Every structure is written in structure tokens, then in C-alpha cells.
Computed example of a mutant assay.
Amino acid sequence: MVLLLVLGFVLVLFAIGLVSMAFAGSESRDGVNRSLAYLEAMNAAPAELRDDVERPFEERVLKPLQQRLLMLGRRISGADSANRIQRKLDYAGNPRDWSPDRVVSVKVLGAIVGLFIGCALALLTGAGAPILVLMTVGGLILGFFGPDFYLYQTAYNRREQLARELPDAIDLLTISVESGLGFDAACQQVARNTEGPLSEEFTRMLAEMQIGQARSDALRGMADRTTVPDLKGFVGAMVQADAFGIPIGQVLRVQSGEMRVKRRQRAEEKAQQVPVKITIPLIFCILPCLFVAVMGPAAIQIMDNIGGT
């Protein structure tokens, strides 16, 4: 009896396997037939349709979407938005793959995404109608101005780094000129032996000079791409020295001394700001812990004495 049951079970499994194989074979044949039919239809389709289907996803979807977002962003931002955004990009060091058109498109896309995220968060938390409207509008504003905040922070970090690196670069430039190198060769030494945004600016200035731009124009362009007052003063002194024929080495020596004095003054200013900045953490973080450590045992003892009486 047991053998008959086992044999029947095996036969059932065998039958199920044959049926599944038959269905799989039919599905595979149907898939092959559909693929062949699709290929035949594509071969018989017009060339314009085949070109549209064979184009990559970026050209078919992403670029048209970016163009629509760009048109909407230009209507919102105004006609002069490209110039303002380009200036922000220059201050931020022109991040790779960033352009005014892309920034405008990202701002519109960020506004749409921020709108949906703010609305979704408000609905998930069960907020009322005023909070829903507030979070939705806040997400929209934050998403729209998010790229501006990013460019501002990048430009601020770059400006601080330029201000820190400029005195050492001027010292290197002075030593190179006084050792017998020309101003252009000294700038090449600075671009080669330094890192960061200052090296990039000197490299770009030399490239502009190599393609035929005047030295004064290249220097002014470097000053216009930054907001560092010391760099603007240095560029102004170099342009005047070049225009009036003043020896470059003498001007660089004066500029180097002024840069060192200004760096010392900035360090002293930062040191004077420390007591003011430490006041808030001292009052709200350190003093409460100190009071708990000092007055806590006395408070516990007083409570025990009161409870004992």
C-alpha cells in the first residue's frame, strides 16, 4: 500500500513537471515570436521612428525635461538670471558640469521635489491645514533656493581658503622674482607648487595670457572671479606697476609685507572673538553641569534632612 502511494506521488510530480515544461516551452516560443514580430515591425517602421526609439534615454527624456524646466525657471527668475548665476558660479570656482542653465533647471526641479516632500511629511505626521500649507510652501522655497545656498557656501569656503593661501603664494612669488625669474615664470611656480583655488586661478590666468590676452586683463579677470579684498589689492598693484613701469620685485616685496601684517591682524581678531563666542556654550552647557555637580549633593542632603524631620 505504501509503495503504491509513493509511486502515485512520483507520477503526480512527473506529470506536473511535464505540464510546467510544456507551458514554459510555449511561453518561450511566444516570447521568441513576439521578439521576431517586434524586429520585423521595427525594420518595416519609418526611419524617423527607428531613430527615435534607438536614441539613448538621456536624449529622449532627460534633455527635453531639462529644457522645459529651464524655460519655466527663466520665466520665474527673470531675464538677467543667467548673468547673476554665472557670477555666483565664478565665485564658487565654476564647479564641474555646472552652468547657469543647469542651475535654473535644478532650482525648478528642487522646488517641485521640495513641494511634494513637504506635503508628504505633513500628511504623514497628521498635521492640520495651516501646518500642511506651511510645510508645503517651506519645502517649495527650500527646494528652489537650495542651489543658491549651495553656491553661497561653496563661494564662502573658497574665499576663506584663498585668503589663507594668498600670503604664502605672494611670498613664493616674491622669492621667485627676486631670484631672477620673470613675472610669468614666477606665476607658473606658484601654480605648480601650490594647491587649491589659488593654484587654479593662477593656472587660468596663465592660460588666458597664452591665448593672447593682455597681462593686465588676465589679472583683472582673476580679481573679478573672487571676493577677497587682499587679492583685489594685489591685482591692482600689479596692474599699476605694469602700466607705469615700476619694478615688479619692489612691488611684490611691499605686497608681501602687507599680506603678512594683515594675516597677523586677522589671527589676532579671531583670538579676540573667542571669549565672546564661548559665552553661550558656557552659560547653557557648562555652567548647568557644574551646578549639578556642586550643588547636587547639598540639595540631596537638604531633602533628606527635611524628610527626616
Rank of each mutant, 00 (worst) to 15 (best):
K262R: 14
K262E: 08
K262L: 08
K262M: 06
K262I: 05
R263I: 01
R263F: 05
R264W: 03
R264A: 11
R264C: 00
R264N: 07
Q265G: 01
Q265A: 08
Q265S: 07
Q265K: 03
R266K: 07
R266Q: 09
R266A: 04
A267R: 11
A267F: 02
A267I: 04
A267W: 02
A267N: 04
K270V: 00
K270H: 02
K270L: 05
K270F: 00
A271C: 04
A271E: 05
Q272K: 12
Q273F: 02
V274F: 03
V274K: 06
V274S: 00
V274R: 08
V274D: 01
P275V: 14
V276C: 01
V276H: 10
K277G: 15
K277H: 04
I278S: 12
I278D: 04
I278V: 14
T279R: 14
T279M: 13
I280Q: 10
I280D: 01
I280C: 03
P281I: 02
P281Q: 10
P281F: 01
L282V: 07
L282F: 15
L282M: 15
L282I: 04
L282E: 05
I283Q: 02
F284W: 05
F284P: 09
C285D: 03
C285V: 14
I286D: 10
I286M: 13
L287Y: 09
L287A: 12
L287H: 06
L287N: 06
L287W: 06
P288S: 11
P288K: 11
P288Q: 11
C289K: 04
L290K: 03
L290A: 11
L290Q: 06
L290C: 09
F291I: 12
F291M: 11
F291K: 01
V292E: 02
V292D: 04
V292Q: 08
V292A: 14
V292F: 13
A293W: 08
V294E: 00
V294F: 11
M295R: 00
M295D: 01
M295G: 10
M295K: 01
M295W: 09
M295Q: 03
G296I: 09
